[in-house]
Simulated assay, not measured.
Amino acid sequence: MPAFQEEACENALFQAKWPDGFRCPHCEGSSFYRITSRSNRVFECRVCHHQTSLTVGTIMEGTRTPLEKWFSALYLMQQGISAKLLAEIIQVTYKTAWLMNHKLRHAIQVWDESRPLKGELQLYGDFYARPAMSGVFDPPDQRDQPAVVGASIDPESGGVAEVKIKRLPHGEFRRRSYDVECYGTFLWRHVTDVKSEIHSIEIVKQSDSEGVTEIGLIWRGVIGWLARTFGGIGPKHLQAYLDEFCYRINAGTNAFATLLNLCGITRTVTLRALVNKRRAVRSVRWTGQSNIRKKNVS
């Protein structure tokens, strides 16, 4: 892991927050003073004298953790580590590490929601089951979670161009049904406007006689990662972890730089909002027109 220096981190966050140069949030002025008698992260507009912090309006707003530790967390997010391991590496409490990881996941989720899938699609539905604890009865909301892997397919290579993995409502998805209606919530929420573009949707089934497709490997990959790294994830925060996994695929080699830019433009989320996060997924009926194919693969 690279050694991050506080001053270099401040300069990088400044560039992420104001890529076109400083802009006063009050008057849009571009000239500023750095307040040297206080924190180096405070700036004063030369025009209206409004003072603003470097972290205000970013995912790091209100933090007391040094930016160098935030940047270490950004870097380690590329490896998908647990909060426990992150806390040991950057020397913070588990609670702080957990909150940092989830704030970064929040920035990823905001980015994910702004990028709907388009063009030719492949869909693969299955159930995620958190490893059962021996001798402990799981309550109803801990049962298997239906989810769908959706991918935009590159028309030239035939490979996955972008991928999303999203939870589905229990009442909507059926284990042995592969009709497009089972994917209605996913299509309505995460696919671009069908009125402007007709999609070819290929529904991928499980079959022992065929090979493993790319989206099948992605599904196996996320299950293995959640089991190895966290011992499984409950339904409350499952979606955030699924989005994190997909982010690393979609962002590729630009994962660190992209996440840094997202941190600079995404407003923070509070611990209370994360703790009180609802886990229900609403069903939405799919009414779009599509060319639908089914393929028996695993």
Rank of each mutant, 00 (worst) to 15 (best):
P155H: 06
A151Y: 03
D126K: 14
Q109N: 14
V163R: 00
S177V: 05
F173E: 01
F173D: 00
I165S: 00
I153F: 13
E172C: 02
V110P: 05
V163G: 00
V180E: 02
E162T: 07
S134T: 14
R130Y: 10
G125P: 08
K164S: 11
Y178Q: 14
G150D: 03
D138Y: 12
E181F: 05
D141E: 15
V163S: 00
R174K: 07
I108V: 13
R130M: 15
P155W: 13
A132G: 04
I153D: 06
R174P: 02
L123H: 12
P116G: 11
G171L: 12
G135E: 09
R174C: 03
D138W: 12
S152N: 15
R174L: 14
D141P: 12
A132Y: 04
D141W: 05
K118M: 02
S177N: 06
P146H: 13
D179V: 12
L117M: 06
V163H: 02
E113H: 12
H170G: 13
Q145K: 10
A151L: 14
D126W: 11
I153A: 02
I108E: 08
Y124T: 06
V180N: 09
S157P: 00
A147G: 00
D144K: 10
H170Y: 14
V180P: 13
W111P: 02
R130H: 15
L123Y: 10
Y124P: 10
S134Y: 12
R143K: 11
G171K: 04
L121M: 10
K166N: 03
V110Y: 07
V180S: 06
E162F: 01
I165H: 01
S134W: 13
Y124W: 04
P169M: 02
G171Q: 01
A151E: 00
E156L: 13
G158M: 01
M133G: 08
D138I: 05
P139T: 13
R176V: 03
